[in-house]
């Protein structure tokens, strides 16, 4: 299923600082929780890296730990000067990657 949602303005003026919102469906199992039935710790399973690129340029990235809430929401900004494409990559510590893309027209 589509796990990720991103919100990027469709248009912007050159030099404008836009706000980008992202959300992904993930349990972010912290590794600190116990299984109620067995009493054993549930192994950690989180998204540990998030990366945002603008026309191929990595302009914002984040390292996450178990202290980030389930279904992580992250918003940040980007200064845009030409039309192009954003790419967002969530890296799951088990090696899976989820990506989302969004286009922007800069006048």
């Amino acid at each position: 299923m589509a796990k990720a949602r991103v919100k990027v303005p469709k248009t912007a003026k050159a030099g404008e600082i836009i706000t980008i919102k992202t959300l992904i469906r993930h349990k972010m199992e912290s590794g600190n929780r116990k299984d109620k039935k067995t009493g054993k710790l549930i192994p950690r399973h989180i998204i540990d890296k998030f990366t945002a690129k603008y026309n191929g340029e990595k302009f914002f990235w984040a390292d996450w730990e178990g202290g980030v809430s389930a279904n992580p929401y992250c918003s940040f900004t980007c200064k845009v000067d030409k039309s192009g494409e954003f790419e967002f990559i969530w890296h799951d510590e088990k090696g899976e990657e989820y990506t989302a893309k969004a286009k922007i027209t800069v006048a």
Partner: peptide, 15 residues
């Protein structure tokens, strides 16, 4: 609606 994580289930429902 964007930051409401419940919307992820709405999208799953659509699929």
């Amino acid at each position: 609606d964007f930051i409401n994580p419940g919307m992820l289930w709405v999208e799953k429902g659509r699929e």
